[in-house]
Computed example of a mutant assay.
Amino acid sequence: MRPEERIRPHAVPEVPGADPCHGAWRREFPGEVSSVPAARAWAHGLLAVRLAPATLDDVVLLLSEVITNAVTHSDSGRTAGGRVTVHVTHDRKSVHVEVTDDGSATSTPAVHVPDTDSDGGRGLWLVDLLATAWGSSRHDDEAGRSVWFQVSG
C-alpha cells in the first residue's frame, strides 16, 4: 500500500478531567517559515512532560521536517493567507502528528534518498526512518493535503 493510501485516523478532542497521559490538540499556523520554530515550541510544550526525552526529540524533529515541507512545497506557503494546521494526539502507546496544508498542484509528498552534500531533501526520508508509521492523503472534498506520522512512546 502506498503511504498516501493509508487511512488517516482522526484526532479526538481532549476531554477535560481525562487521564493526563492522554491528549489531543490542534493549532493553526501561518504558512510561513517562522511557523516552523513556533510549531516546534508548541509541540515541545505539550509533550515534554508526557514523553521520554529521546521520543520527544524525534517527534519535534519530524514535526519540523513535515511543517517545513508544507510551508515550502504547498500553496500554504505560496499564497497570501496560507495556513498550516497541526494535530497532535497522544496516548499511552504513541504520538500521532498530522500536518494539513493547502495542497499543491505541482508536488506530492515523496521520500527521496538525500545527497550527502545537499543542504535539504531529508524531510520525509527522516520521517520514513524514525516514525513507526506515516502517510499522506489528498483531500478530495476540499483543497489540501495531510502528512501524518506516528512515533511509539
Results as ranks from 00 to 15, higher is better:
152 S>L: 06
113 V>Q: 11
65 E>Q: 09
87 H>A: 10
107 S>E: 06
143 A>G: 06
27 R>C: 08
33 V>T: 14
137 S>A: 12
152 S>W: 00
101 D>L: 00
52 A>F: 07
68 T>K: 04
93 K>W: 04
45 G>A: 10
127 V>K: 11
59 V>Y: 13
143 A>S: 09
119 D>P: 02
112 H>S: 13
5 E>I: 00
151 V>A: 07
25 W>D: 14
57 D>K: 15
63 L>I: 06
119 D>T: 02
106 T>F: 09
76 S>E: 05
48 A>F: 07
67 I>C: 10
79 T>G: 08
94 S>G: 06
138 R>Y: 04
107 S>L: 06
48 A>R: 15
85 T>W: 03
142 E>T: 11
27 R>D: 10
83 R>H: 13
51 L>C: 15
90 H>C: 11
86 V>P: 09
55 T>L: 05
80 A>V: 08
100 T>I: 01
118 S>C: 07
34 S>M: 08
25 W>Y: 15
142 E>I: 01
67 I>Q: 08
116 T>G: 13
35 S>V: 03
114 P>G: 05
77 G>M: 02
90 H>G: 08
7 I>S: 15
82 G>K: 07
88 V>T: 09
74 S>C: 03
87 H>N: 11
110 A>W: 01
147 V>G: 04
55 T>K: 13
137 S>D: 00
62 L>W: 06
54 A>E: 15
53 P>F: 01
53 P>I: 00
73 H>V: 04
17 G>W: 02
58 D>M: 06
98 E>F: 00
38 A>V: 10
111 V>I: 09
46 L>M: 12
29 F>A: 14
80 A>F: 05
63 L>Q: 10
96 H>N: 05
99 V>W: 07
57 D>L: 11
66 V>H: 07
2 R>C: 01
97 V>W: 05
40 R>W: 05
64 S>H: 05
20 P>V: 01
6 R>K: 14
145 R>I: 01
66 V>E: 08
15 V>L: 14
149 F>H: 09
96 H>T: 09
124 L>W: 10
69 N>R: 02
91 D>H: 03
125 W>H: 15
134 W>F: 10
61 L>F: 12
105 A>Q: 12
39 A>I: 03
110 A>Y: 02
112 H>I: 06
74 S>V: 00
47 L>M: 12
62 L>C: 06
66 V>S: 09
144 G>Y: 01
18 A>Q: 14
126 L>T: 03
48 A>Y: 04
17 G>K: 04
126 L>A: 05
130 L>D: 07
20 P>W: 01
150 Q>T: 14
2 R>K: 08
70 A>H: 08
55 T>G: 15
4 E>V: 00
15 V>D: 12
47 L>C: 13
7 I>F: 12
135 G>D: 04
22 H>M: 07
80 A>P: 04
132 T>Y: 03
128 D>Q: 14
62 L>V: 06
95 V>A: 11
121 G>D: 07
70 A>D: 07
136 S>V: 00
88 V>S: 12
16 P>Y: 03
132 T>Q: 15
